[in-house]
Design a protein around this nucleic acid. Sequence first.
DNA 1: CTCATAGTTCGATCCTAGTCGAACCATTAA
DNA 2: TTAATGGTTCGACTAGGATCGAACTATGAG
Lengths: 241, 241
Amino acid sequence: MSEGPNIVRVAALIADNARVEVLSALMSGRALTATELATMAGVTKQTMSFHLGKLRDEGLITVDKQGRHRYFRLAGPQVANLLESLMGLAFQGAGAHISTGPRDPALRKARVCYDHLAGELGVFVYEQMLHTGVLQQHPGGLRLTEHGREWFNHLGIDTDVLTSSRRSFCRACLDWSERRHHLAGALGTALLARIQELGWAKQENGSRVMVFSSQGERALRAMLVAQSEPSATAQQAAVAF
Amino acid sequence: MSEGPNIVRVAALIADNARVEVLSALMSGRALTATELATMAGVTKQTMSFHLGKLRDEGLITVDKQGRHRYFRLAGPQVANLLESLMGLAFQGAGAHISTGPRDPALRKARVCYDHLAGELGVFVYEQMLHTGVLQQHPGGLRLTEHGREWFNHLGIDTDVLTSSRRSFCRACLDWSERRHHLAGALGTALLARIQELGWAKQENGSRVMVFSSQGERALRAMLVAQSEPSATAQQAAVAF
DNA sequence: CTCATAGTTCGATCCTAGTCGAACCATTAA
DNA sequence: TTAATGGTTCGACTAGGATCGAACTATGAG
């Protein structure tokens, strides 16, 4: 009983079809009501209420009361993180190495992970950002360079506003299909929001799939491939996160 | 049922006291027999056999047959990773922010994570390695520098041998108590082994706690703060054993 | 060969937890 | 106020799974 019960309770919480359905749905980043979740998971309202109570008690989800509706959302990025890594292990173990990642090619290419962009495109974006000096890795974590600040401004995102928020500014999240990192944190959230705002991509009905228009994908990629020599300038001009 | 059952099964596997006890014990990195695990978890042999079968089926652990013994160990670093992140979430959620990390100060200071060093000391080692240029971060992952190669050679570790191994050479693992990274991969494993070989630290009875001798800790820290060259004391210690 | 120990399989038991029907609060619209 | 819809609470039912006793197989020691 050294470090027993806590971890068991969290795992038990995830060890249920209905609740995983809920968490998966909430991975889209949107807040959903109890009845929406109930129909999604294929259970009655009572049952869903029961499950939501449990998830809330253990701190995996939070509730926003608005009028007679209650909107449920994931408690934080760490929860999304945990789910992603669980998925990684689940697919590898059970399927006996069919292939890395989901069967759905669209889900593999670009999807929403909680509130930021994941999948092949998400990984591409992240790695190009490091390569072109928009971001910089550092023992203490990721940093946005001065050049990166300009890059985001050019896209129409004011990074100074984001830094005031209490949540972590920029952060890497491990991608379960790609086994590589993509951008999370306030910066990742803002980027995804802006991509949708610009009409570059749209979230498919109620799923986590992000469908990019061909122009949108081209525009995004274009902003990331053509960059001048980064490493020298990026070195000094780091902004604290 | 989009991506349901797999992840549920993995979670259900962890949602059991006895099995978590097993996995926790195996986080020490050692391979243990069924009866050892049975007494550790406080169940009978039959029950343990039942649990081990399940864990093996799902690919979380592997078995080595040696004579009439069967040695069980974690299937890989990803499993250790998952457990660490689960612990992170468990402690944060349930305890209502008592403090980050385990109550046991020794466990928090230095512990074994699967087969490498974690805890405050592990994080310190990793960050100093980056700071002094032993390791270097790179979009594709971590890299050992030429200076780093020499550093490890001074310590008595031949890094060329390690690169031939199939497993990932050096890799960062997220620390659940520190919320920061420490060194994993073949390099991390070799380092921990060497630390024990030199008598700098010893693993406590059957737990994951690493107890450093005061000289050992001083020697290790000395090798990491003086970035020009390994200190005299460290070289002596390396030769002495 | 005989005995002891490591580990698995089978059957029976017991208990937890997910489920739904029904009744019960809460908020908004009329 | 009444009606309607969103959510929760209560009680009873059921299934799955964790557990152990006992019997069984396999390897090694003498």
